[in-house]
């Protein structure tokens, strides 16, 4: 299971404050802690913490790279911010560009741009692609799968290895009126997306979205993660510092025979998965 640690995000107060005061220590601490907890990638998102998004993502990337070599996940809806991050990021150990829809009303070619940026960054640079297009986030199973199929096809046409795609069927907060049905839709969509290429493209999800605004966030995240993993999810943007959540990851991996059982299987999970 590939966990993308979500904590370095300007939406969190501690990160926002660190950005405002250019204080490296809290950011570096989060980078180290998430890595130790088993994060494969570290998400880097400026959020609303600064007006100068390009400059800030560069500062975050450089700050993190001073302390650890964990691959990064550059997170922005603006290609210009990702491009700024790419100028300073080290993609040798891996990289994720997070994220692009299939297309946008304002930019039909946005996915192509992300593939080009990934190619320029090197063979280990991957892309998170949302099952979303110019009409917005689909509410049903079929449209999600259809968009995912178009994403895979487009990648193949461009000669972009489908193993470098992390398809995100988009988790919606379960608390939003009428959104509860989306959880089942996402799982059903995953069952089909995994057959779009062989080997299957990666699938990822913004896990914490599903529990947004609820009273039992960690529990909902954990259960949903276990359910989604059994439907083929092999990656998630999640809180790597939530130990109970990471135990669910280790246990699910073990139950699905992806890790050989040992009496210390929980303890060893993070060590065994470190790159």
């Amino acid at each position: 299971m590939i966990i993308i640690g979500e904590r370095i995000n300007g939406m969190f107060t501690d990160v926002k404050d660190a950005i405002a005061s250019k204080n490296k220590q809290p950011v570096q601490e989060l980078a180290k802690k998430q890595t130790e907890a088993g994060a494969t990638y570290l998400d880097v998102n400026v959020g609303t913490a600064a007006a100068d998004q390009e400059g800030t993502i560069q500062w975050l990337v450089e700050t993190i790279q001073e302390t650890c070599s964990t691959p990064l996940c550059l997170d922005s809806q603006k290609p210009s911010v990702i491009a700024a991050g790419l100028k300073v990021v080290n993609a040798e150990n891996g990289l994720l560009l997070n994220s692009t829809p299939l297309n946008k009303k304002s930019d039909e070619e946005v996915f192509d741009k992300y593939m080009e940026m990934a190619d320029q960054a090197g063979p280990k640079a991957n892309i998170i692609t949302l099952t979303m297009d110019k009409n917005g986030v689909p509410q049903d199973v079929d449209t999600r799968v259809a968009i995912a199929a178009e994403i895979v096809q487009k990648a193949m046409e461009k000669g972009f290895d489908t193993q470098r795609l992390f398809i995100d069927p988009i988790a919606l907060p379960v608390k939003v009126p009428n959104a509860q049905v989306q959880v089942g839709n996402i799982l059903n969509a995953m069952d089909q997306i995994k057959y779009l290429a062989d080997p299957a493209p990666h699938m990822t999800i913004g896990l914490s979205n599903v529990s947004q605004g609820t009273s039992e966030r960690s529990l909902i995240n954990r259960i949903f993660l276990a359910m989604a993993m059994s439907h083929g999810l092999d990656s998630a943007i999640a809180d790597a510092l939530d130990e109970k959540l990471m135990n669910v990851v280790a246990t699910s991996d073990m139950l699905m025979n992806k890790q050989i059982y040992s009496d210390s299987f929980l303890k060893v999970y993070t060590a065994a998965n470190k790159a």
Binding site: I260, Y261, S262, D263, S264, K267, V268, A271
Partner: peptide, 13 residues
């Protein structure tokens, strides 16, 4: 026993 094989490696580690 593959499970014990893994466990002993963890123990020495």
């Amino acid at each position: 026993d593959i499970n014990i094989a893994k466990q002993i490696n963890i123990l020495v580690s």
